[in-house]
Amino acid sequence: MSGPPSSETPPLRVVLAKLGFDGHDRGLRVVARLLRDAGCEVIYLGLRQSVDNVVAVVEQEDADAVGLSMHNAGHLTLAPKMVQALRDAGLDTPVVVGGIIPDVDVEPLRQAGVAAILGPGASAEEVVHAVRSAVDSTP
């Protein structure tokens, strides 16, 4: 007999990281806990990650989404780089960006393929919803 299909859908696996030098990890840590408490498995990479390492981790961990936290001007260069590096590796993993993102930068980030952008102080529901819908809308 073959086993019946597993009854529950497996938890979402989300890689959380900060790219580059920026050491402000308060938001990233809060989001890690919010996602854990919403039943997600968070692969927490924390500070000082390179784009290439995040791609390698997404492959090895078979992650459903990447969450980046940005607290300085880097978001306009680093977030698009992250999206591009994933696509170059043949991955369509959605990238969600949180942190201090001025309104004027939201549209350019969307154009660059960022799936969702969360402002500072986003609620638990907003964070979880953003990640889930980014994953769901990925073919």
Binding site: P11, A32, R33, L35, R36, D37, A38, G39, C40, E41, V42, I43, Y44, L45, G46, V57
Partner: peptide, 14 residues
Amino acid sequence: SSPLTGGAILGDRI
């Protein structure tokens, strides 16, 4: 994993 929510924070690989 958290026994309450089933979620987990996996950080060993850092």
